[in-house]
């Protein structure tokens, strides 16, 4: 699956500010299979990511620019985005 494929990760709003990154390209470890797995793994990537992903329950995700749930598989994903609940309008 995505284990050997580079994907794009994008961050918005306070998640972007806390990680210090708007986007990055990387290869996910094979144990990361779902959105929830990826949220948990992000929190292990150092102090900035631990802070940004400390409360995974309030973070929303999109795969290839569509809203997804925590249980959604990452298979076939090219771009995964993390952001707070939206506040437009």
């Amino acid at each position: 699956m995505t284990a050997t494929t580079e994907i794009t990760l994008r961050y918005f709003a306070w998640i972007r500010e806390k990680t210090g990154l708007a986007q990055e390209r990387l290869t996910l470890p094979p144990t990361v299979e779902t959105v929830a797995d990826l949220l948990a793994w992000q929190a292990t990537r150092g102090p900035e990511f631990a802070d940004a992903f400390a409360k995974p329950g309030i973070i929303r995700a999109a795969i290839d620019q569509r809203h997804v749930k925590p249980a959604t598989t990452l298979v076939g994903a090219r771009e995964i985005a993390f952001f707070p609940p939206v506040t437009g309008g």
Binding site: A62, P85, V86, T87, G88, G89
Partner: peptide, 28 residues
């Protein structure tokens, strides 16, 4: 349209106050 836009469209507001402090708006 407004109700759906406010809960689905990926926009985020950050407020900057007199005095310089700023904060991201929480979803209602």
């Amino acid at each position: 349209l407004m109700d759906y836009l406010k809960t689905r469209a990926p926009f985020w507001k950050k407020e900057t106050f007199a005095g310089g402090q700023s904060a991201w708006v929480d979803a209602r």
